[in-house]
Nucleic acid binder design. Structure first.
Lengths: 159, 159
DNA sequence: CCGATTGACTTGAAGCGTCAAGCGTCGACG
DNA sequence: CGTCGACGCTTGACGCTTCAAGTCAATCGG
């Protein structure tokens, strides 16, 4: 598409990029592995359950849930179907507006989150927070903010 | 498993984690999308082709290639089969040791990399390097190094 | 030498995510 | 009111990754 001569990466930029790329891959794998091993669920399934557990009435619209968990609506629909089969989530049409579907965390689902969260938090702490100084963490927030803005300027500044 | 009371995340730690988690997801998606759109290949396929293009004789053992690209041998095997079908890679047993398989980038594969790399580098630059200061980049290398070490202490320090 | 073992890789089936198409509901407009 | 479009969600087919089992080559032990 772009016929301009590309600005190639110098050694340091290259190193920055390799370091980040490896971290992205390794982190995904490590967190998925921990959750799969200790709770038998994927990282995305955990995000869905955890997000619901913190929501008002432990209830959210499917579309809002998809937005918060960074997933497509279709993916969420499949995942919630599985979670429903496990008895962790229940689906019901929104009484206020029949187009919406509400996902509700069941009592069993709540217990699953309570049982799973500590181990997951501990792993996040061990892999990400503990190895970094306060200053690193502050910079990392800035970096995350800037990169996320570059990827999607319309996204909330929380991300 | 661990019955100790977990150390929950405070607001800043939480923010650090959310920021990183979102960046991880968004970056994967954005880079996959760019490569799919402009070159019709996945990020992993690109990594394989790019890694081969820089290797001695444009040739590597499957197992080394899998290690460098952070993928399982099985995954690599499937992917290389697809790349072979496209004519970008050729497989041949290692003449020195029949247990190894060598993956060789063909001339057509080289041309594919040459055509694809500039756009990809430009996207990495746009999403990651340009939004960050030199100091951010330096800190990001450190962060990547420390996190990768925490995940896998045996990995090379390059990652 | 020859059988057993290990290591490198491949294969096929099963599971998950994506894409495109479809369904049902709501709101607007005539 | 009736219909039409838009929206929220679901579904099924397809492609990719993974997992477990299998193949083949090299090496080790007797």
């Amino acid at each position: 598409m772009d016929t301009h001569e590309p600005r190639w990466l110098d050694a340091e930029e290259r190193q920055t990029w390799l370091s980040l790329a490896a971290m992205v891959i390794n982190l995904s794998n490590a967190l998925d592995a921990q959750l799969q091993r200790d709770a038998g669920i994927s990282h995305f399934e955990y995000q869905v359950l955890a997000t619901l557990s913190e929501a008002n009435e432990r209830t959210m619209r499917m579309s809002d849930l998809a937005a918060v968990t960074n997933g497509s609506l279709s993916r969420l629909s499949h995942v919630v179907k599985r979670l429903e089969k496990q008895g962790w989530v229940r689906r019901t049409p929104d009484p206020d507006n029949g187009r919406y579907t509400l996902a509700v965390l069941t009592e069993t689902g709540w217990e699953k989150v309570v049982a799973t969260a500590p181990g997951h938090v501990e792993e996040v702490r061990r892999l990400v927070l503990d190895p970094l100084t306060q200053a690193h963490q502050r910079t990392l927030r800035t970096i995350g903010h800037r990169v996320n803005q570059a990827i999607d300027p319309t996204s909330t500044c929380q991300e």
